[in-house]
Computed example of a mutant assay.
Amino acid sequence: MNFKYASRMEKVKPSAIRELLALGAQPDIISFGGGYPAPEVFPIDKLNGVFLDVMKDNGSKALQYATSEGLLPLREKLVQRMVNTGISCELDHLFMIQGAQQGLDLVAKMFIDKGDVIVTENPTFLGALIAFNPYEPEYKTVPMDEEGMDMDALEETLKTHSKVKFIYTVPDFHNPTGVTMSLERRKRLVELANKYDVMILEDSPYREIRFEGQAIPPIKSFDTEGRVIYLGSFSKILCPGMRLGWVVAEKEIASKLCLLKMAADTQNSTLNMYLADQFMEKYDIDEHIGSIREVYKEKKETMIQAIQEYLPSTVAYTNPEGGLFTWLTFSSNIDAAKLMRERLLSEAKVAYVPGAAFFPVKEEVNHCRISYSNMPKEKIVEGIASLGKILKEYY
């Protein structure tokens, strides 16, 4: 039968790295691939107690439908957290979503017509490209350095492309590079968005996982014209399986995005929203986040020390102050996907995410993203040592 798909399905294709990541999920593989939180940081016992209390005290409500905006007490707590970070926020600015990933889809659905331009960092989050692609945008990319997106290059892009709808950025502990955008560049980003009449989509699921240095205010905190849409998530600060995130946006935008959410899934899980709300009611979530930071700080330090000890000195790497990832750059003649397929999986029993898929326009094959979050420290050292042995042969 000839299935008559919409033209947008031409942009929905299996990722070239899916097969590699499936192989990397085998139990004998040390996988630095998925951006998974460490399971040991999940507050299982506390959540189990909260679940029992919710079912005892509010079971009939927790198992019922809720509004598309989300559970009111939970939203009130999140509004206060946003205000504490410097973001001007009221209840009608914030609603709940199924993790930040749904926010990416909703924003693209609302703003992008075929051929409109999305500006991204180069490289950028692969999951964002997967969310954006069905709406058939064009991409313009801006290079990065140790302070994040190059603002002079961004302005040149905005000058020369009139169909830019929004700038997408992961400013805190960037996925995939681990880089954090500097304070000065955050301010200038908002200035450029105002000047050239474009939106900013600030994707910030890692913001609270800072284990070194000083916190930098969100881009949204400098927003004077309602141009910044902020995405937050419980996935890295509580657990990803609950699929809870939130959007903060100007009232009109938030209302329209919430209508799109209603069309997509009606609402988030009422039960999961009750669990998150009561967890925050009964326990100090900032104390919990502090314990997560300590775990990731130790793992990151272990990985960086192993990189310095075992990888060739010509391999460049980022040293993040938070988040889950570092980014390796090999010599230009090394194809990271080919290396993983032909040597690493079979010989070293090591997996990572090849970097090419993170580049929206022109792929660069000599990079990879490695995550330290989901591996025990001894496995981090073993895996990096094995990677180093193969790389030294290549070099």
Rank of each mutant, 00 (worst) to 15 (best):
E40T: 04
E40W: 01
E40Y: 00
V41C: 05
V41A: 03
V41Q: 03
V41H: 02
V41G: 00
F42Q: 05
F42S: 09
F42G: 05
P43N: 14
P43Q: 15
D45K: 07
D45Q: 08
D45M: 06
K46D: 14
K46Q: 15
L47I: 14
N48I: 12
N48P: 06
N48G: 11
G49Q: 14
G49P: 00
F51H: 09
F51Y: 08
F51V: 15
D53R: 04
D53M: 04
V54K: 04
V54E: 03
V54G: 02
V54F: 00
M55D: 09
M55N: 07
M55H: 06
K56N: 14
K56P: 04
K56C: 12
D57G: 00
D57R: 01
N58Y: 14
G59A: 05
G59R: 01
S60C: 06
S60M: 09
K61W: 01
K61Y: 07
K61G: 00
A62E: 00
A62R: 00
L63W: 05
Q64R: 11
Y65N: 14
Y65C: 09
Y65H: 12
A66F: 12
A66L: 09
T67E: 07
T67Q: 03
T67R: 06
T67D: 07
S68P: 10
E69V: 09
G70K: 01
G70D: 12
L71Y: 11
L71S: 04
P73L: 14
P73N: 12
P73H: 07
L74C: 02
L74A: 06
L74N: 05
L74I: 13
L74M: 06
R75G: 06
R75P: 06
R75M: 13
L78K: 00
L78F: 11
V79L: 07
Q80D: 14
Q80E: 15
R81I: 08
R81A: 09
R81D: 12
R81P: 01
M82P: 02
M82N: 05
V83F: 11
V83Y: 13
N84I: 04
N84V: 02
T85W: 09
T85H: 01
G86P: 00
G86M: 08
G86C: 08
I87Y: 01
I87G: 01
I87W: 03
S88Q: 14
S88C: 11
C89F: 08
E90A: 09
E90P: 10
E90C: 12
E90Q: 14
E90Y: 08
L91V: 13
D92M: 11
D92A: 12
H93I: 04
L94R: 00
L94K: 02
L94M: 13
L94E: 10
L94S: 07
F95D: 07
M96R: 05
I97R: 00
G99T: 05
G99Q: 05
G99E: 05
G99L: 02
G99R: 01
A100D: 10
A100L: 12
A100V: 07
A100F: 12
A100Y: 15
Q101M: 11
Q101A: 14
Q102I: 04
G103F: 02
G103K: 03
G103I: 02
L104P: 00
D105W: 06
D105T: 14
D105A: 15
D105C: 09
L106T: 06
L106R: 01
L106I: 10
V107E: 08
V107Y: 07
A108S: 15
A108R: 03
A108F: 03
K109G: 15
K109Y: 08
K109V: 03
K109D: 15
K109S: 11
F111W: 03
I112S: 08
